[in-house]
């Protein structure tokens, strides 16, 4: 048993280890009340920088307070394994760094990375002109360097992936911006952090192309009333316009600084 679970590829820590204990932990839902130093409809400030990974075709780094992700795009390259397809294939892979969460993140233990990958894939796949890339694969690799809630990861991942694809010069219908919301009772808070998500009844993630005013992905989990979900989507769509402006600004300034 011990033999089969032993990971031969990596440096393994001690057999038994414990995450650090903090004083302010386990505040019993206080996260919802206390953990907010911004307005309910404000999102965290975004730092977005395209073109950081020099080996990749295109890349982007995004930081929204404690959510930090790096995204690299490779391709379009020839799909070797699949059968002939008239359209291109988009392949999204998400990995959590071992130090990205409070508790050490062992590789391949759970399916959260794949769940995030599917959500990001869904958000950006309809924005790419895949019919222009027959027989080809576009690879998007996302590394979560610091994680502050899955919802924030999916939203930031979609933003970073779309920026990296634009940086890679891959034809797409429009830039995809994304925003998350959490609901508790009648209160809606945008761009929740991990503690707020834990205390919330439900969450909504919206991805859209503000330039075309079309929605690419809506992802709702938990208990949210129909009215609440619609209200969340409306608020998120408004914030996506702001996010889109950040993306446009970062792409234009990175292009201006290119030789």
């Amino acid at each position: 048993m011990a033999q089969s679970t032993f990971d031969r590829r990596r440096v393994n820590g001690p057999e038994e280890s414990f995450p650090p204990v903090f004083d302010d932990e386990d505040d019993g839902g206080l996260g919802w009340v206390a953990m907010r130093n911004r307005g309910a409809e404000d999102i965290r400030p975004i730092f977005l920088q395209p073109g950081l990974v020099s080996q990749a075709n295109g890349s982007a780094y995004i930081e929204t307070e404690n959510t930090k992700l790096a995204c690299a795009v490779y391709g379009p390259r020839q799909s070797k394994t699949t059968t002939y397809s008239e359209r291109g294939r988009l392949n999204v892979e998400v990995k959590f760094a071992p130090f990205s969460c409070v508790r050490r993140r062992a590789p391949l233990r759970d399916a959260e990375d794949r769940a995030v990958a599917i959500a990001v894939h869904q958000s950006i796949v309809s924005s790419i002109c895949l019919e222009l890339f027959p027989k080809s694969t576009i690879d998007v690799f996302i590394v979560v360097i610091e994680n502050d809630g899955t919802e924030g990861c999916i939203a930031s991942g979609s933003i970073a992936a779309s920026t990296a694809l634009a940086d890679a010069g891959i034809e797409m219908l429009g830039l995809v911006a994304s925003c998350s919301a959490s609901v508790r009772g009648d209160e809606i808070r945008l761009d929740p952090v991990e503690k707020e998500v834990a205390a919330a009844d439900g969450t909504v993630i919206l991805a859209c192309m503000p330039a075309l005013s079309s929605v690419t992905n809506v992802y709702q989990s938990g208990r949210v009333s129909a009215q609440g979900a619609l209200k969340c989507m409306e608020l998120c769509q408004g914030r996506c316009i702001d996010v889109h402006a950040v993306m446009a600004q970062s792409l234009l300034s990175s292009r201006a600084s290119m030789p």
Partner: peptide, 9 residues
């Protein structure tokens, strides 16, 4: 105009 365009613009 000769300004830089972004996808979707």
């Amino acid at each position: 105009t000769s300004e830089t365009l972004l996808p979707g613009q």
